Amino acid sequence: MSQTKWIEIETVHRFITQKLEGVVPKDAWGETSYFYNPGRVFDRGTYFATIKQKDGENDQASNLDRHGVWRLNIGVSKGAYFELFGPPSPRPGKGRIVEGDWDFKALDELTPHPVYGWMSWLSVLNPSNETWEKCRVLLSDAHKRAHGNFAKRLAKLERSN
């Protein structure tokens, strides 16, 4: 029986910061957040992905406090989200998770983000090589979405000056 090969966090970090242009990583809230922010025009830029390694006060659905477990979160376009999961669930109440039959603790399974699925974010715990290939495409989609949102934000800033 073959053993699943998990992708390392550093592989994901390198892909996001070296293969996707204009990305600025920031460590905050117990995770590494990735912003599209070429030239560091904004304080934080446009948020499109995170790597989370521990549970947070309002986000414990994935049980990230297990040894070696981490979660990649990706803010994809509505079209990409819909293709994978159908329409997003309604926004959950404070301290709750999105509705659905998702196992947010399962390794190597793409799911809606347990808290932000309603905003077209998805997640995967400890992706395998096969799932990582899907994630690379999804990260590129999220990066493109962030690029568009950044351009709108920049245009608004330029109009106000």
Rank of each mutant, 00 (worst) to 15 (best):
G75C: 07
R91E: 15
L64S: 01
G100L: 08
P88M: 06
R71I: 10
P88A: 09
P88I: 04
K78Q: 08
S62K: 00
G56K: 08
G56F: 05
R71E: 11
D103G: 15
L64E: 02
G100Q: 05
A106M: 14
K94M: 14
V76R: 01
E109C: 11
G56N: 07
G56W: 10
F104T: 01
E57W: 09
H113V: 01
G68Q: 09
Y81K: 01
I74N: 00
G100K: 04
I74D: 00
D101W: 14
N58H: 15
W70H: 07
L110N: 15
P88S: 12
I97E: 07
D101C: 12
R71K: 15
W102H: 09
G79M: 10
L107W: 01
E57G: 12
G79I: 04
F85T: 06
I97D: 02
D55Q: 05
V98K: 03
E57I: 10
E83Y: 05
P88R: 02
R91P: 09
E57D: 14
Q60R: 13
R66G: 08
D55P: 04
D65Q: 12
I74L: 06
H113I: 02
R71H: 11
L107S: 11
P112M: 09
I74Q: 00
P90V: 14
H67W: 10
K78A: 05
K94C: 07
D65I: 13
K94R: 15
V98R: 03
S77P: 05
W70G: 03
R91M: 15
E83D: 15
V69H: 00
G93W: 08
G86M: 07
L64Y: 02
E99Q: 15
R71N: 07
H113P: 03
N73G: 10
F104Y: 12
D55E: 11
F82K: 06
K94L: 09
S77I: 02
R96T: 10
I97W: 04
I97F: 14
G86I: 05
G86Y: 09
W70T: 05
D108K: 00
L110C: 15
P88K: 04
A61N: 03
A80Q: 00
S89F: 04
E109D: 14
L72A: 13
E99W: 11
S62V: 09
G75S: 11
N63D: 12
P114L: 04
E83W: 01
I74H: 00
P87S: 14
R71C: 07
E83C: 10
L84C: 06
W102E: 05
S62F: 02
P92S: 12
L107R: 02
E99C: 10
V69N: 05
E83P: 04
A106V: 13
H67N: 12
P92L: 10
L84Q: 02
E109P: 02
G86L: 04
R71S: 09
P88E: 05
G95Q: 13
A61L: 08
P87V: 11
L107N: 09
R71M: 07
K94N: 14
F82C: 11
V98T: 07
T111H: 02
F85A: 06
D101A: 15
K78T: 01
S77R: 01
R66S: 12
N63R: 11
D65R: 11
P114D: 03
